[in-house]
Protein backbone atom coordinates (compact mmCIF):
# COMPACT_ATOMS: atom_id res chain seq x y z
CA UNK A 1 0.00 0.00 0.00
CA UNK A 2 2.62 2.58 0.82
CA UNK A 3 4.83 4.04 -1.85
CA UNK A 4 2.43 4.57 -4.65
CA UNK A 5 -0.81 6.29 -5.03
CA UNK A 6 -1.75 6.10 -8.62
CA UNK A 7 0.15 3.00 -9.76
CA UNK A 8 -1.29 0.93 -6.98
CA UNK A 9 -4.77 1.45 -8.22
CA UNK A 10 -6.32 -1.23 -10.25
CA UNK A 11 -9.38 0.18 -11.78
CA UNK A 12 -12.68 -1.59 -11.37
CA UNK A 13 -11.65 -5.13 -10.91
CA UNK A 14 -14.98 -6.81 -10.57
CA UNK A 15 -13.29 -10.15 -10.26
CA UNK A 16 -15.05 -13.38 -9.64
CA UNK A 17 -18.20 -12.69 -7.79
CA UNK A 18 -17.25 -9.13 -7.02
CA UNK A 19 -19.57 -6.52 -8.34
CA UNK A 20 -23.00 -6.40 -9.71
CA UNK A 21 -23.75 -7.14 -13.34
CA UNK A 22 -25.59 -4.60 -15.44
CA UNK A 23 -29.05 -4.35 -14.02
CA UNK A 24 -30.88 -4.89 -17.26
CA UNK A 25 -29.18 -8.19 -17.99
CA UNK A 26 -30.86 -11.49 -18.57
CA UNK A 27 -34.32 -12.51 -17.70
CA UNK A 28 -34.17 -11.39 -14.13
CA UNK A 29 -35.06 -7.83 -14.29
CA UNK A 30 -37.87 -7.27 -11.89
CA UNK A 31 -38.57 -3.63 -11.53
CA UNK A 32 -35.41 -1.68 -11.73
CA UNK A 33 -37.27 1.59 -11.62
CA UNK A 34 -36.86 1.72 -7.85
CA UNK A 35 -33.83 3.27 -6.24
CA UNK A 36 -32.39 -0.09 -5.22
CA UNK A 37 -30.24 -2.13 -7.53
CA UNK A 38 -31.69 -5.56 -8.28
CA UNK A 39 -30.13 -8.57 -6.62
CA UNK A 40 -28.17 -10.57 -9.20
CA UNK A 41 -29.62 -13.89 -10.29
CA UNK A 42 -26.64 -15.84 -9.01
CA UNK A 43 -27.34 -14.72 -5.44
CA UNK A 44 -30.33 -17.05 -5.39
CA UNK A 45 -28.12 -19.96 -6.37
CA UNK A 46 -25.52 -19.01 -3.76
CA UNK A 47 -28.23 -18.88 -1.12
CA UNK A 48 -29.62 -22.23 -2.20
CA UNK A 49 -26.21 -23.87 -1.99
CA UNK A 50 -25.66 -22.40 1.47
CA UNK A 51 -29.06 -23.61 2.57
CA UNK A 52 -28.21 -27.09 1.32
CA UNK A 53 -24.91 -26.96 3.22
CA UNK A 54 -26.81 -26.21 6.43
CA UNK A 55 -29.24 -29.05 5.69
CA UNK A 56 -26.30 -31.39 5.13
CA UNK A 57 -24.88 -30.45 8.54
CA UNK A 58 -28.25 -31.06 10.18
CA UNK A 59 -28.62 -34.53 8.64
CA UNK A 60 -24.96 -35.41 9.23
CA UNK A 61 -25.49 -34.67 12.92
CA UNK A 62 -28.46 -37.04 12.95
CA UNK A 63 -26.61 -39.68 10.90
CA UNK A 64 -23.57 -39.50 13.20
CA UNK A 65 -25.86 -39.88 16.19
CA UNK A 66 -27.41 -42.89 14.49
CA UNK A 67 -24.03 -44.56 14.04
CA UNK A 68 -22.84 -43.68 17.56
CA UNK A 69 -26.08 -44.74 19.21
CA UNK A 70 -26.03 -48.05 17.34
CA UNK A 71 -22.56 -48.74 18.67
CA UNK A 72 -23.62 -48.15 22.28
CA UNK A 73 -24.87 -50.90 24.51
CA UNK A 74 -26.76 -53.96 23.44
CA UNK A 75 -30.29 -52.69 23.16
CA UNK A 76 -30.28 -51.98 19.42
CA UNK A 77 -32.84 -54.13 17.55
CA UNK A 78 -33.15 -54.21 13.81
CA UNK A 79 -36.24 -52.38 12.68
CA UNK A 80 -37.96 -54.30 9.88
CA UNK A 81 -38.31 -51.86 7.01
CA UNK A 82 -41.73 -51.83 5.31
CA UNK A 83 -41.45 -52.89 1.64
CA UNK A 84 -43.47 -49.84 0.61
CA UNK A 85 -40.27 -47.83 1.05
CA UNK A 86 -38.91 -49.32 -2.17
CA UNK A 87 -42.03 -48.16 -3.98
CA UNK A 88 -41.66 -44.69 -2.43
CA UNK A 89 -38.04 -44.56 -3.52
CA UNK A 90 -39.04 -45.37 -7.09
CA UNK A 91 -41.69 -42.63 -6.95
CA UNK A 92 -39.18 -40.06 -5.78
CA UNK A 93 -36.62 -41.04 -8.42
CA UNK A 94 -39.31 -40.74 -11.08
CA UNK A 95 -40.23 -37.28 -9.83
CA UNK A 96 -36.63 -36.18 -10.37
CA UNK A 97 -37.00 -37.23 -14.01
CA UNK A 98 -40.35 -35.49 -14.48
CA UNK A 99 -39.03 -32.23 -13.03
CA UNK A 100 -36.20 -32.30 -15.57
CA UNK A 101 -38.75 -32.83 -18.36
CA UNK A 102 -40.85 -29.96 -16.97
CA UNK A 103 -37.90 -27.58 -17.01
CA UNK A 104 -36.98 -28.58 -20.58
CA UNK A 105 -40.54 -27.78 -21.65
CA UNK A 106 -40.36 -24.41 -19.96
CA UNK A 107 -37.08 -23.61 -21.65
CA UNK A 108 -38.59 -24.68 -24.98
CA UNK A 109 -41.47 -22.30 -24.41
CA UNK A 110 -44.12 -25.05 -24.14
CA UNK A 111 -45.95 -23.61 -21.18
CA UNK A 112 -48.83 -26.07 -21.29
CA UNK A 113 -46.55 -29.10 -21.26
CA UNK A 114 -44.47 -27.47 -18.52
CA UNK A 115 -47.56 -27.07 -16.36
CA UNK A 116 -48.51 -30.70 -16.91
CA UNK A 117 -45.09 -32.13 -16.03
CA UNK A 118 -44.71 -29.73 -13.11
CA UNK A 119 -48.01 -30.94 -11.67
CA UNK A 120 -46.98 -34.56 -12.27
CA UNK A 121 -43.84 -33.85 -10.21
CA UNK A 122 -45.88 -32.23 -7.45
CA UNK A 123 -48.27 -35.17 -7.45
CA UNK A 124 -45.40 -37.65 -7.20
CA UNK A 125 -43.99 -35.67 -4.28
CA UNK A 126 -47.31 -35.82 -2.44
CA UNK A 127 -47.55 -39.52 -3.28
CA UNK A 128 -44.10 -40.09 -1.79
CA UNK A 129 -45.12 -38.42 1.46
CA UNK A 130 -48.32 -40.47 1.55
CA UNK A 131 -46.22 -43.58 1.00
CA UNK A 132 -43.97 -42.63 3.91
CA UNK A 133 -47.01 -42.28 6.15
CA UNK A 134 -48.14 -45.75 5.03
CA UNK A 135 -44.71 -47.04 6.00
CA UNK A 136 -45.13 -45.45 9.43
CA UNK A 137 -48.52 -47.05 9.88
CA UNK A 138 -47.19 -50.46 8.88
CA UNK A 139 -44.34 -50.12 11.31
CA UNK A 140 -46.66 -48.99 14.08
CA UNK A 141 -48.98 -51.91 13.34
CA UNK A 142 -45.97 -54.22 13.75
CA UNK A 143 -45.49 -52.78 17.23
CA UNK A 144 -42.49 -50.61 16.43
CA UNK A 145 -43.29 -47.17 17.83
CA UNK A 146 -41.14 -44.08 18.24
CA UNK A 147 -39.86 -45.04 21.68
CA UNK A 148 -39.79 -48.81 21.20
CA UNK A 149 -36.16 -49.05 20.26
CA UNK A 150 -33.41 -46.61 19.25
CA UNK A 151 -33.48 -48.01 15.73
CA UNK A 152 -37.19 -47.28 15.37
CA UNK A 153 -36.69 -43.87 17.02
CA UNK A 154 -34.17 -43.03 14.34
CA UNK A 155 -36.37 -44.44 11.60
CA UNK A 156 -39.25 -42.14 12.52
CA UNK A 157 -36.95 -39.20 13.15
CA UNK A 158 -34.97 -39.44 9.90
CA UNK A 159 -38.04 -40.04 7.73
CA UNK A 160 -39.92 -37.22 9.45
CA UNK A 161 -37.01 -34.80 9.08
CA UNK A 162 -36.62 -35.71 5.41
CA UNK A 163 -40.37 -35.51 4.90
CA UNK A 164 -40.47 -32.03 6.42
CA UNK A 165 -37.73 -30.85 4.07
CA UNK A 166 -39.44 -32.49 1.11
CA UNK A 167 -42.67 -30.83 2.18
CA UNK A 168 -40.82 -27.54 1.83
CA UNK A 169 -39.95 -28.63 -1.71
CA UNK A 170 -43.61 -29.32 -2.46
CA UNK A 171 -44.52 -25.85 -1.22
CA UNK A 172 -41.85 -24.48 -3.56
CA UNK A 173 -43.37 -26.44 -6.45
CA UNK A 174 -46.78 -24.91 -5.71
CA UNK A 175 -45.19 -21.48 -5.38
CA UNK A 176 -43.53 -21.73 -8.77
CA UNK A 177 -46.78 -22.84 -10.35
CA UNK A 178 -49.06 -20.26 -8.76
CA UNK A 179 -47.07 -17.11 -8.25
CA UNK A 180 -47.62 -14.26 -10.71
CA UNK A 181 -44.08 -13.97 -12.04
CA UNK A 182 -44.44 -10.83 -14.10
CA UNK A 183 -43.69 -8.51 -11.16
CA UNK A 184 -41.13 -10.56 -9.29
CA UNK A 185 -37.39 -10.16 -8.80
CA UNK A 186 -36.61 -13.39 -10.67
CA UNK A 187 -38.18 -15.17 -13.61
CA UNK A 188 -40.25 -18.32 -13.39
CA UNK A 189 -37.48 -20.19 -15.19
CA UNK A 190 -34.97 -19.27 -12.50
CA UNK A 191 -37.41 -20.22 -9.77
CA UNK A 192 -38.07 -23.54 -11.48
CA UNK A 193 -34.34 -24.18 -11.76
CA UNK A 194 -33.79 -23.42 -8.06
CA UNK A 195 -36.69 -25.64 -7.07
CA UNK A 196 -35.45 -28.49 -9.21
CA UNK A 197 -31.96 -28.32 -7.68
CA UNK A 198 -33.53 -28.53 -4.24
CA UNK A 199 -35.77 -31.35 -5.41
CA UNK A 200 -32.87 -33.40 -6.77
CA UNK A 201 -31.04 -32.79 -3.53
CA UNK A 202 -33.98 -34.12 -1.51
CA UNK A 203 -33.96 -37.13 -3.80
CA UNK A 204 -30.27 -37.76 -3.17
CA UNK A 205 -30.70 -37.17 0.53
CA UNK A 206 -33.43 -39.80 0.65
CA UNK A 207 -31.19 -42.31 -1.14
CA UNK A 208 -28.51 -41.64 1.51
CA UNK A 209 -30.95 -41.99 4.39
CA UNK A 210 -32.55 -45.08 2.90
CA UNK A 211 -29.13 -46.65 2.47
CA UNK A 212 -28.29 -45.78 6.07
CA UNK A 213 -31.54 -47.26 7.33
CA UNK A 214 -31.20 -50.39 5.17
CA UNK A 215 -27.49 -51.16 5.31
CA UNK A 216 -26.92 -49.73 8.76
CA UNK A 217 -29.68 -51.66 10.46
Amino acid sequence: MPGTIVDDVEIIDAGHGGGTPPPAGGDDDGDSSGSRRPVPRRAYFTALQLGLAAIVMFFMALASSYIVRKGLGTDWQRTPLPPVLWFNTAILLTSSVTIVVARRKLEGGERGAFQTWWWVTTGLGVLFLAGQIIAWRELAAAGMLLATNPSSSFFYLLTAAHGAHLGGGILALFYVAFRPWSRSRISQGTAAELTSIYWHFMDGLWIFLFALLTLGR
Partner: peptide
Protein backbone atom coordinates in the same frame (compact mmCIF):
# COMPACT_ATOMS: atom_id res chain seq x y z
CA UNK B 1 -25.95 -16.62 8.25
CA UNK B 2 -27.26 -17.55 4.82
CA UNK B 3 -28.15 -13.93 4.13
CA UNK B 4 -24.78 -12.61 5.31
CA UNK B 5 -22.73 -14.98 3.17
CA UNK B 6 -24.84 -14.48 0.05
CA UNK B 7 -24.67 -10.72 0.45
CA UNK B 8 -20.95 -10.76 0.86
CA UNK B 9 -20.30 -13.10 -2.07
CA UNK B 10 -22.70 -11.65 -4.61
CA UNK B 11 -23.46 -8.05 -3.70
CA UNK B 12 -20.03 -6.49 -3.48
CA UNK B 13 -19.79 -3.35 -5.52
CA UNK B 14 -17.43 -2.71 -8.42
CA UNK B 15 -13.82 -2.93 -7.34
Amino acid sequence: ALNFITTLIDLRTKG
